[in-house]
Simulated assay, not measured.
Amino acid sequence: MTATSSALPAAFDNTVTRQLGVEIPIVQAPMGWIARSQLASAVSQAGAMGIIETSSGELDAVKDEIRTMKDLTDRPFGVNIAQAFVRDPSIAEFVIEQGVEFVTTSAGSPTKYTSTLKEAGLIVYHVVPTLQAALKAVDAGVDGLIVEGGEGGGFKSPTPVSTMVLLPLVCSRVDVPVIAAGGITDGATMAAAFALGAQGVQMGTRMVSAAESPVHDNWKQAIVDAAETDTVLLNQRHSPALRALKTGRTTALVDAEHNVFADFGDAKSLYYGGDMEAAIALSGQVAGRIDSVRPVADIIGDTVREFGEVVDRLAGVGSR
């Protein structure tokens, strides 16, 4: 059940929702080959912020996905520019031309695109894994930060810091709004992020397993079946590191001294073909808390409901 404006918690009327133009401060993570129109439009339609990825490097396909979003939803959506994987220097200009109003930048310096995007009137958030990176992004003029703990899936700092430590640290040192990422899957974890200073959350692994996610059912089921201990952190001798599901392929790469991106494998055979050993299946530790494949609208609606229940319960405890 999708939340309606009348049922939204008061905490959702904040800088993040106003800047992004959404009702619900939940952002879908920009996962390569996954964060495309099928998933992102469902997130936007549910009142949150759908994001189109660029980390796949397939910019022609990504550009088509951005155009398709306009046919699938009239709600706001954003685009991520993953700088380490975008080879087209005109990507910022393309995003601006498409009328996109919200951009997240990641996997590179916040100074590369921030000024160009902001001069065109866009809202820019940069993804950061450390306090130092957060301060650099603020100095570069970003509108906000996505603070990503090391328990999250995908590209990580080689020296990961948990969300419980990193989020309040960054929030205590910056004045821009913060979206929390890493370990967020429901209303309770969203409420915890707000308690630590966030004004929004980003969901990755939870959205990979959603009914509208384009990945093969084998991957969704692997997330559902996973324990909280069933991820590994790869590539810690290089950057970025990678958090992924524990499979035969990833277990063999745990102690690799070389850059494991050379062994990433055939992504499409994994993502769309369901061969769990064909490539590295990126996933966060929160897979251990996901027990079913559910529609995006239900995930977001239940998150909003539970968030409100948790906040009300804590307020009640405090008044006794």
Rank of each mutant, 00 (worst) to 15 (best):
G288V: 00
A193E: 08
K268A: 13
G316L: 02
N14W: 11
Y272R: 11
S106P: 01
T17I: 02
R206N: 02
F261N: 13
T229E: 15
T2L: 14
F12W: 09
M69E: 02
A82V: 10
T163N: 14
I51H: 09
V170C: 08
F102G: 02
P240A: 07
N218M: 02
L131D: 11
G144E: 12
V86P: 10
G288R: 00
T116H: 08
A287V: 08
V232E: 02
M190F: 08
D13G: 06
E257F: 00
L8E: 04
S292C: 05
D175N: 13
E65W: 03
G187S: 09
K118H: 08
A92V: 12
Q132Y: 07
E228C: 11
E257V: 07
A227T: 15
R36P: 00
S5W: 11
A195T: 08
L122H: 06
K70N: 08
L167G: 06
G284S: 04
I146V: 15
P25E: 05
D255Y: 00
T17F: 05
F261K: 10
D217V: 12
G154K: 08
R320N: 12
D175C: 00
E228M: 13
G183R: 04
I24A: 01
L167Y: 06
R36L: 14
D291H: 15
T105F: 12
T251M: 07
K70A: 10
W219A: 13
A48C: 05
I280E: 03
D302Y: 03
K70E: 11
A287S: 14
L242D: 01
P177I: 08
V62M: 14
V79H: 11
G200M: 07
A192C: 10
F194S: 04
A7P: 02
A181E: 06
I184L: 12
T231F: 02
V161H: 04
R206L: 08
L234C: 01
Q285P: 00
D291L: 00
D298F: 04
Q38V: 12
K70Y: 07
G187A: 10
A46S: 15
